[in-house]
Write a protein that binds this DNA or RNA. Structure first.
Lengths: 138, 138
DNA sequence: ATTCCTGCAAACCATTTGCAATCAT
DNA sequence: ATGATTGCAAATGGTTTGCAGGAAT
């Protein structure tokens, strides 16, 4: 939390209660909250935060590089950029995501891309399947 | 094309001109057309195909397993399920996608997931960067 | 005092749906 | 004849934007 506030201050952004609430929610919420999840979570303690403010602040944090946006069917989810690189397990039944440390991608292997003049700067890798709770019986 | 028609017929679906046009577009269009791309492409030769029909038929083809849906920021793109497994290079500037044959994922390595009771059935891997045309000067 | 932020409401865009008419079988 | 399929138009749901008032610096 302190890191976020420091970063915002250093760039000249103001520390409003709404902004604090949104960051707090990101830190305490489910692993991959949507904007609406965050809004719902905040409502309990700070009903005076509108949904568009949530969107605006998420956009700001993304611009500052401290939050990642994950494209899911039907909308986007967000996560704090963790210290370490990781990927996600996404349940096809309930839609929940979990982090997984496995990452087999070796940038040096991407000669094919370079050969075609494509410069790779990042990648996203999601695993789809069924979580413990949704695992089909049998 | 014949494969598609055979599949549809065998499942009791009707072969309408709209349906043929949509499949033809999928086969001839850019690599990862959105629903709107397909609609625009079709308009030239068959103006009598509405956008919702494009959506409905894409949904049908996805249900039949012959078309993949790729989630991109701002919407979905579609591709015919090719014979071989592959991934995509996505340009952060122009949004275009290209196929790449590289895939480092080894399902056997996903012990972490299995340990947590998560059954992996598939994965998606996208590389982000800049294509030849958009490569930042310098 | 200045500049940034916010809430509201309306706009937007992709996608979905209800319905009556139409078409492939 | 029958049931699937279509076009239309309206609804939906996530996200963005314009604007005027309000808050942090």
């Amino acid at each position: 939390m302190e890191n976020f506030l420091r970063l915002l201050r250093s760039k000249g952004f103001k520390l409003t209660p709404q902004r604090r609430a949104i960051i707090a929610a990101l830190l305490s919420c489910a692993p991959f909250p949507t904007a609406q999840d965050i809004h719902r979570h905040i409502r309990q303690t700070a009903p005076d935060v509108s949904l568009d403010t949530v969107y605006r602040n998420l956009a700001l944090l993304i611009r500052l590089g401290t939050v990642n946006q994950v494209n899911l069917p039907g909308g986007s989810a967000f996560e704090i950029v963790a210290g370490h690189h990781h990927h996600h397990l996404i349940c096809l039944a309930c839609g929940r995501a979990e982090c997984i440390d496995y990452c087999p991608v070796i940038t040096a292997d991407l000669a094919q891309a370079e050969d075609r003049g494509f410069t790779v700067v990042s990648h996203s890798l999601e695993f789809y399947g069924y979580c413990r709770d949704c695992r089909p019986a049998g």
